[in-house]
Amino acid sequence: MKKNVKIRIAYISTYVLFLVVSLILGYNPGKEITFNFISFLIYMLKILPCAFILIGLFEVWVKKEVIEKHLGEESGIRGYAWVILLAGTIAGGLLVAFPIAYSLYNKGAKLSIVFTYIGAAAICRIPMTLYEASFMGVKFTAIRLLVSLPLVIITSILLGNYLTKRNYKMAEGK
């Protein structure tokens, strides 16, 4: 067995043991941690299966050439617009953004576009933005978007170019 797997089994069993003992003894912090774990597990199960099914469909239906053309090395400014639009309409935040970004990359999207996607998925999902504005006011949300989005694009281009020069490759087979 690999070392990583052993470590993982060790801390997961310690964690579970701690929770079980806490529940039996009625130890409050243990109960609260169990509650947090379950509520976040439910939250993730609400979005993750859908996200992965859509990623699967994306992988079989969308041709590599299409992504290369629109989001690849030759894509230009339009590529950023496309990817921000895509990020804006997909729910789930960073959790879902990483696997999607990974699929985009494997289909030929360039790194600066991949990073823009992640940034945009974090800050400008349309449903979330509307929700935010309803609590914080339109001015607050507008400032946040108008300041952060250009910074996300600029830093993504810088980071993307830097990594491309250094022949960076994303992990394989995830």
Binding site: L48, I53, V60, W61
Partner: peptide, 17 residues
């Protein structure tokens, strides 16, 4: 066929992560 393949990809990816 393609759809079944997509579901398979989804399951494999999900399991890995």
């Amino acid at each position: 066929q393609k759809t079944l393949k997509a579901v398979k990809i989804a399951v494999v990816k999900f399991k890995k992560i």
